[in-house]
Simulated assay, not measured.
Amino acid sequence: MTDTIQFAERGEKQQVEQGLELAPKFDSQGLLPAITTDFESGELLMVAYMNEEALKKTIEVGEAVYYSRSRQELWHKGKTSGHVQKVKEIRVDCDQDAIWLRVEQIGAGACHVGYNSCFFRSVDRDSVAADQPVSLKMAESEKTFDPDKVYKK
C-alpha cells in the first residue's frame, strides 16, 4: 500500500508554505528530521530521520517508522523492544523540511539506552570552566527499562 501514498511535487513557495498538500523537502541524503513528542504530555521523546519510504510507511501503518543512518535501513520503532509509537498526529513545518510526530508511547520508554526520553541529560551551565569540557547532568534519574533484557544483548 505504501506505493499508493503520493506526495505532491514541490512547487511555488506559496504552495509549499501555505498549501494543503504534503510536499516534503528531503535533504541531499534523502532524509528529513522527525521530532517526536508524547501526545498527552508534550515531552520531547526523540529526534530521528525519515526517508521517503519511512514517511510513507508511518502514514500507512499509523506507527513511527524511521530511517537509521547508522544501519542504513528502515527502523520500525518498537519492532524489537515492543516500545511502539502509535502516531496520533503528524505535523509538517512551514517549508516542509521537518516532521513532528505526536505519539502515544507504548511500553517503557523511547530511548534505546533505557530512559523514557532520548533527552535524559542536560548541559550543566553552572559547571562551565575555562579550558574544561562542558559537563552534563542527569535530567531523568532512573531508567524505565533494562536495555540488555529488552534487546537481549
Results as ranks from 00 to 15, higher is better:
M1V: 14
T2K: 03
I5A: 02
F7Y: 11
K13G: 14
Q18A: 12
Q18P: 11
Q18S: 10
L20W: 11
E21Y: 13
P24L: 00
K25H: 09
S28R: 15
S28E: 12
S28D: 13
G30I: 05
L31F: 09
L31K: 04
L32S: 03
P33A: 08
A34R: 00
T36L: 00
T36K: 01
F39M: 14
F39R: 10
G42W: 04
E43G: 02
L44S: 05
M46E: 03
A48R: 02
Y49W: 15
Y49G: 06
Y49I: 05
M50D: 03
M50R: 05
N51L: 06
N51R: 07
N51G: 05
N51H: 07
N51S: 02
N51E: 00
E53L: 02
A54M: 01
L55C: 02
K56L: 02
K56I: 01
K57A: 07
T58Q: 02
E60A: 15
V65I: 03
V65P: 01
Y66T: 04
R69I: 05
S70N: 10
Q72E: 15
E73L: 09
E73Y: 08
K77N: 07
T80V: 14
T80A: 03
S81K: 01
H83M: 06
H83T: 01
E89K: 14
I90P: 06
R91F: 07
R91L: 09
R91Y: 11
V92I: 10
D95G: 08
Q96E: 11
Q96T: 04
D97I: 10
A98Y: 06
I99Y: 01
L101Q: 05
I106G: 06
G107V: 00
A110R: 08
A110Q: 06
H112T: 03
H112I: 00
H112S: 00
H112W: 00
Y115N: 05
N116M: 13
F119T: 08
R121Q: 13
V123E: 02
D124I: 08
D124K: 10
R125H: 12
R125W: 06
D126W: 00
D126L: 04
V128C: 11
A129L: 15
A130Y: 12
A130H: 07
V134D: 10
K137S: 07
M138G: 12
M138R: 14
A139H: 10
A139G: 08
E140T: 03
K143A: 03
F145Y: 14
P147T: 01
D148F: 06
D148S: 15
D148T: 12
V150A: 15
K153V: 10
